[in-house]
């Protein structure tokens, strides 16, 4: 398969667009898609201060990178959920990512800031861990964004 733009060997096939892309043209394509989606849905503008919840995984860190490259002012917030090494790894990767790009990362620690971890919350509420986690993360991310005065 060839890159739709330069005809070099493709590294990824995007079936939705019936197209293949080489590495650099795939990155360009993704940037263009994100920019178009933000514009089409009137999500935010160049003057807004944005905060992005990051987990340390590829999805949230890639979005942080893309938004920054597109010129938006984006800070990160990491919720430390107290889930064993998963949380420690996520925090380490998020910090490393932010530091390498001179970005600002705020950490909310459920244990020290709110007095519980996700495994404890799941046990106390008799909910599945994913349910306790989903509810807590949504509330805490909104709270952190409101407290810090972000627009989005």
């Amino acid at each position: 398969m060839k890159c739709r733009v330069c005809r070099e060997r493709a590294v990824i096939s995007v079936r939705r667009h019936n197209a293949g892309f080489c590495r650099s043209h795939f990155i360009e394509h993704i940037h263009r898609q994100v920019a178009r989606t933000i514009s089409d849905h009137h999500m935010f503008g160049a003057d807004d201060r944005l905060v992005l919840g990051v987990s340390g995984g590829k999805d949230s860190l890639a979005l942080w990178e893309i938004l920054t490259v597109l010129g938006y002012r984006v800070d990160g917030v990491y919720l430390h959920l107290g889930i064993d090494e998963y949380s420690s790894d996520g925090l380490r990767l998020s910090r490393q990512f932010a530091s390498e790009r001179d970005l600002s990362l705020r950490v909310v620690d459920l244990g020290s800031d709110h007095g519980f971890s996700i495994p404890e919350a799941a046990r106390l509420t008799s909910r599945a861990a994913c349910s306790a986690c989903g509810l807590s993360k949504r509330y805490l991310l909104n709270e952190a964004a409101a407290e810090m005065g972000y627009d989005v």
């Binding site: 398969m1 590294v11 990824i12 096939s13 293949g20 590495r23 995984g57 999805d59 949230s60 998963y86």
Partner: peptide
């Protein structure tokens, strides 16, 4: 260190990593 599309031919000695695109977060 290269991603492969479906049509790429594999060699008998290739070591291939198959990684799910969805993970926790």
């Amino acid at each position: 260190d290269e991603l492969l599309t479906d049509d790429v031919r594999l060699h008998p000695d290739d070591v291939i990593e198959v990684r799910p695109v969805i993970s926790g977060g």
